[in-house]
């Protein structure tokens, strides 16, 4: 069974925000909620890098661990989903998530937040696949239609990859070998460290021409 993951290639992301837009469009996400965002480091100076981030569907998901009503569940493909009917809008998942994935439609006084919304890996929710109720709450269920997440499908530079973690790792390893740099896979160590499948971040030894002379290795894979 495939273990679904996201992978963003920082060497390729051009901060076009196409993934953000595609996601909003596909799922008809309301104003103020963005399931995906692009963050740029060292903006405007040589060597700037951008990374597209959404829910990474962690192996040991912090949101699941802290949810007081246990509304999260994990599909057999490793996708972390939640039941909005159960969600009480306490915001604990937002505190716990390293990636800032959980979003709330409101942020009012007295902790009024509405139901949490986050990336579903285009896999909908607990309602029947493709139903109107599912679409209204969670957006389109592309996985049930045999399609991959729309953000990655729409990515013009194929920086954002979505799919089976093993396949993504192979693609990425091939890229690193060809270009000889950019071996850091952002977020994988945080999201998928010591998972059940034993699928760690692909760090092809010797693939990079050892750019850093010092003992400190590039830290991207650990972030």
């Amino acid at each position: 069974m495939a273990r679904m993951k996201f992978l963003c290639d920082a060497e390729r992301c051009i901060e076009c925000n196409g993934c953000v837009t595609a996601c909003k469009q596909e799922h008809e996400i309301p104003w103020g909620v963005n399931r995906r965002r692009v963050v740029t480091m060292n903006d405007g100076v040589p060597g700037e890098r951008s990374i597209s981030v959404a829910c990474m569907h962690c192996s040991d998901a912090p949101c699941m661990a802290v949810c007081p009503v246990d509304c999260f569940y994990k599909t057999d493909q490793g996708v972390v989903l939640h039941d909005k009917d159960m969600c009480i809008g306490c915001g604990y998942c937002f505190y716990a998530c390293p990636f800032g994935a959980p979003q709330f439609p409101q942020l009012g006084a007295f902790g009024v937040r509405g139901k949490m919304d986050k990336c579903t890996f285009c896999a909908g929710g607990p309602e029947p696949d493709g139903s109107a109720a599912e679409f209204e709450k969670y957006g389109r269920n592309r996985l049930s239609e045999g399609k991959l997440p729309v953000c990655a499908e729409m990515c013009s530079t194929k920086a954002l990859l979505a799919g089976d973690g093993d396949v993504l790792a192979d693609i990425y390893r091939d890229r690193v070998l060809r270009r000889g740099k950019g071996a850091e896979v952002w977020g994988w160590a945080t999201a998928y460290k010591a998972p059940a499948g034993g699928n760690g971040a692909p760090r092809p030894a010797g693939a990079t021409p050892a750019p850093s002379a010092g003992p400190a290795a590039p830290q991207g894979g650990k972030s």
């Binding site: 950019g182 850091e184 990079t208 850093s212 400190a216 830290q219 972030s223």
Partner: peptide, 11 residues
């Protein structure tokens, strides 16, 4: 080829 400062920023 070294992106270390970027990843330090991230961390």
């Amino acid at each position: 080829l070294n992106n270390q400062p970027v990843w330090s920023e991230v961390r």
